[in-house]
Design a protein around this nucleic acid. Structure first.
Lengths: 178, 178
DNA sequence: TTATTACGTCAGGCTTGTTGACTTTCCAAC
DNA sequence: GTTGGAAAGTCAACAAGCCTGACGTAATAA
């Protein structure tokens, strides 16, 4: 097992093309990686504080977010977006339902399905959680400017694999990028 | 408890200024939030596969990454960057040392300190893990272009809080942004 | 000498994830 | 109308990865 013996350092040409790749040093890439790590941690810090107060975790946040995003979505659909097992989600979902934040109604088309909705209380928590992240994002967007924001989104989307991108796009109201 | 009753929708003016904030709708912000969520998941997927093979987790990856980044750093310093407890890190570090990926030498200046280094084997795993992420990042960078990359980094940095930004900058070889 | 720091470790607890097995309900196809 | 399978819920057991609290040891600093 010997990895990357030839790619030890500096300018990784990386492709066959070699267009204008001068900026793609391993240093640059590594900084991008680290920026993701630190930014993501900062990004989840605010909601985590609120959630801890209420004895919830990030899993609850994610469930609440996507139920809010698409009211009436089924358990299977939610399972698909979150990428976890039924059992894992169920535990979280059960507490949310018991606590009166989520409502589970029998499916209209198919009575086997359960359609998930936020209650007024659940929607209130969603707003509270999201607002902290929006505030952070808003501040970052204002500081960086519209052009930077476009680049930010462009790179993030380019980082997603096919399947993830599909899920991401499925959520969009108005797809802009063909 | 009633949150954000007034901010329900659309164009959040958000500041007192109102410069050229037309692009900052709640929709835009929400998409940014979701892009972070999905991109981060895609971003960690490749290393996770390799780590699972070896019965390691993300915690091991993070430790390896930062030890590689700054060979000889002390346990306390590592604790600070990772933002976890001593006990939590110790379990991870112990297995890495037992498995011969990390070496812990007695501090030169201060004999209480332990300075951490990757062994040849540890460095090999680091390269293997990082290369998957670099490849993804490289592809995304190439697809999006240099300008987008600049924006990407700019927004991520603007998202970090003071303390996180300090840690992030402390790693940099050549700080560019004043 | 004493206080403090750096590190390691034992114990116990929580959340979130996993597998595997099983039941109930319901749709749909034969 | 029976039957096969999908959707959902549940029980049990387990592991990773975090946490707090308490304690011990070694070495530096006051």
């Amino acid at each position: 097992m010997r990895y990357g013996d030839a790619m030890q350092n500096k300018v990784s040409v990386s492709g066959a093309g070699g267009e204008s790749l001068l900026f793609l040093t391993d240093d640059q890439l590594r900084r991008g990686i680290e920026a993701m790590f630190f930014a993501y941690r900062a990004f989840t810090a605010d909601p985590d504080l609120i959630l801890a107060e209420l004895d919830y975790g990030r899993a609850h946040h994610r469930a609440i977010h996507f139920i809010n995003r698409e009211p009436g979505l089924t358990v299977t659909a939610l399972l698909d977006v979150l990428g976890v097992t039924k059992q894992s989600l169920n535990r979280v979902l059960r507490t949310l339902i018991e606590d009166g934040l989520v409502e589970s109604r029998i499916g209209r088309r198919d009575r086997r399905e359960r359609q998930l909705y936020l209650t007024e209380q659940g929607a209130a928590l969603e707003r509270r959680l999201t607002e902290t992240q929006r505030a952070r994002m808003r501040a970052a967007y204002r500081a960086a400017g519209p052009q930077a924001v476009a680049g930010f989104r462009q790179v993030l989307e380019a980082m997603m694999d096919r399947d993830t991108l599909r899920q991401y796009r499925a959520l969009k109201d108005l797809p802009e990028t063909p």
